[in-house]
Design a protein around this nucleic acid. Structure first.
Lengths: 187, 187
DNA sequence: ACCTGAACACCGTTCAAGT
DNA sequence: ACCTGAACACCGTTCAAGT
């Protein structure tokens, strides 16, 4: 508050003329950012899986773009219009209500968790210079990760995508087991 | 600090004789809790998938048991001995280094994300009495979720397990594609 | 070796007083 | 309608002084 006031060339207490309190201000920030998200339109060339991918990719990118606000995202339920649209997208793809909800939540959980991991630093990263919580020594780690470290920051996108694929493969498999309501629109 | 001091019947500044600062204290709490985690031993009757399941289940339960500390878990890399053991478990299951790392991270991301969602409240929960970030009205939500709400808090475990299964199915599929180093030990 | 009082540099927030 | 000074009830942390 005080800092924000200074930034705006005004005293901290003036802010209370425009915003009820700090909490509301943070809520506002989150809300503004979430508005940037958009579930991709139903382009004919995209399968539902591709649309889902794009949506969660965008979410991750939003988190990356705002690493300081992102933890706030995390602490309130993601009840946005876009969540709803995504849910409906899954319904149209042939999932029944419960399955669509579950699928949506699994995908969100993964994406949120992944984004957090990226921001705070990955576990089992070869660069373990950082503090981190331990229980073992740097030597112990290096015993495992030989000199050219295996998975570098380089390919974060591919790594995220890997997880997305795993889940989507699982979902496809799952859908195969129960008869979908709509014809499987996949190419 | 001051509150903790009071709780201990001592002045806040006394704490600094035992702990360098607040940050260190929080780190300590996280560390203590993480020590409760244990990757299940290589019992003969358990497949690697079952062992992985048990490990992450335990992680979720830890989060549930300590909803207030859990967000702290979240903000530091999970470099524990158990992470390493889990990684080795995956290696033994036939994943090469990079794949094992990725699998580990996908599973952690999902579990962390799920735990957070559970603690803060799920998106698209029929109980939307809570604030949450919006963009749409309660009416709009109820238009979708007809009276008997579809997925209730009741079966949180099943829901978590559902996601775990999706990922494990994906992993099995993925492993099938590349020749595993060890014979597939699955029953 | 451990505790304490006083003090410092911070917070978010209220409210009466100003324009 | 908006801003401000003074004030309140908090923080984490330092340090010299006590035992």
């Amino acid at each position: 508050m005080r800092r924000l006031g200074r930034e705006l060339g005004v005293e901290a207490m003036s802010l209370y003329n425009h915003v009820p309190n700090k909490e509301a201000l943070l809520n506002g920030m989150v809300e503004v950012l979430l508005e940037e998200l958009e579930v991709p339109a139903d382009a004919l060339e995209d399968s539902w899986e591709e649309r889902v991918r794009k949506a969660f990719r965008a979410y991750l990118q939003l988190a990356r773009a705002h690493p300081n606000v992102f933890p706030l995202f995390t602490m309130r339920p993601l009840n946005t219009v876009e969540s709803l649209k995504l849910f409906e997208l899954l319904r149209e793809a042939g999932f029944d209500i419960v399955s669509a909800l579950r699928a949506f939540r699994v995908l969100s959980s993964y994406t949120v968790g992944y984004a957090i991991a990226e921001i705070r630093g990955f576990a089992l990263e070869s660069d373990i210079s950082r503090p981190g919580v331990h229980g073992f020594s740097e030597v112990e780690l290096l015993r495992i990760f030989k000199s050219p470290p295996p998975l570098e920051k380089a390919d974060r996108d591919a790594e995220f995508e890997f997880g997305l694929t795993l889940i989507l493969v699982g979902l496809r498999e799952y859908k195969g087991r129960r008869p979908p309501r709509n014809p499987p629109e996949q190419a």
